[in-house]
């Protein structure tokens, strides 16, 4: 466990961010098929099949690579609804 770095400011478009998030999703789940995940598919459950572990790993990577602490800023984690909502949340920060 270490202290957090302040990441680079986010200036990318939601579409470019969604692509970056797909890359991270593939890495944390080991599932190549998620490289084509639509932006409106639910991340949890039958959709992308994220669970509490892979979801937490994804948010940690987001924190490290984009400097956005989704878990700290969104108590209900509504940003984790879909890839699109997550990209939009990061783009607004």
């Amino acid at each position: 466990m270490g202290t957090r770095r302040d990441g680079p400011a986010v200036s990318a478009s939601p579409a470019a961010l969604a692509d970056e998030l797909r890359r991270l999703l593939v890495e944390v789940t080991g599932r190549a098929d998620l490289a084509d995940l639509p932006t409106d598919t639910p991340l949890f459950g039958a959709g992308a099949g994220l669970d509490s572990l892979t979801g937490a790993m994804l948010l940690r990577r987001v924190h490290r690579e984009f400097g956005v602490d989704v878990a700290g800023e969104d108590m209900n984690l509504d940003a984790m609804e879909t890839l699109g909502t997550l990209a939009a949340f990061i783009a607004r920060r």
């Binding site: 949890f44 459950g45 994220l50 669970d51 509490s52 572990l53 979801g55 937490a56 948010l59 878990a71 700290g72 108590m75 209900n76 984690l77 509504d78 984790m80």
Partner: peptide, 21 residues
């Protein structure tokens, strides 16, 4: 509890449809 360390617990709650309103 809401902390950085129990994030997986909050994710599981969210995935099960629970929200802190």
């Amino acid at each position: 509890l809401v902390s950085e360390r129990n994030l997986p617990m909050r994710l599981a709650l969210a995935a099960a449809g629970l929200r802190a309103a």
